[in-house]
Amino acid sequence: MFGLGLIKGLAVTARNLIGSYFDRERMTTVCYPEEIRPPIENFRNFPFLVYDERPDDLRCVACKICEKECPPQCIFIIQRRDDQGRPVKQPEVFDIDLSVCMSCAICVEVCPFDAIKMDHKFDYPSDNRFRGLLADKMQLARSNAYYHSIRPTEAAEVDARLAAETAKKAKPAPLPAKPNASAAPSA
């Protein structure tokens, strides 16, 4: 019968309409922002820098590996120098241009010090396309506790690994002039 396919299709639509009131599988949308779906732990957006105790004492040692490996070249690092001009294992400047960053997480993968991680925050409104989206060291710093709060499993693994490394290093004479070597979780 001509039109049978049409009627069959309409029956499917009707089933979906009614079904969406009862079946979660048929109704997958939520009313954002009144209702927010629970974030998925692995979700990545922009990077942040992890610190253990004080925000000015980052885990980052300014080795510039991430700067070199970043595909869109959005990271900019200048190493700190002390009074005599010798390099210190701290970044003086650590800027990430969020307008350029493409959230690929390659910086996280290549970082040997677990100093840079991916954040869940995704809303960075700004009225200035250039300055407004340039995040500096202080804006990027997040505590290890924050890291634990957004990615508990991954952060626990990282802490265990860092603790094992410090224990290994502690057996021979501990290196002086490295106050941030202890990577015990502050959380």
């Binding site: 001509f2 396919g5 049409l6």
Partner: peptide
């Protein structure tokens, strides 16, 4: 379900 919806549709 998807096929019931459209595959036999006369317009399609």
């Amino acid at each position: 379900e998807f096929e019931r919806l459209v595959s036999g549709n006369e317009i399609l």
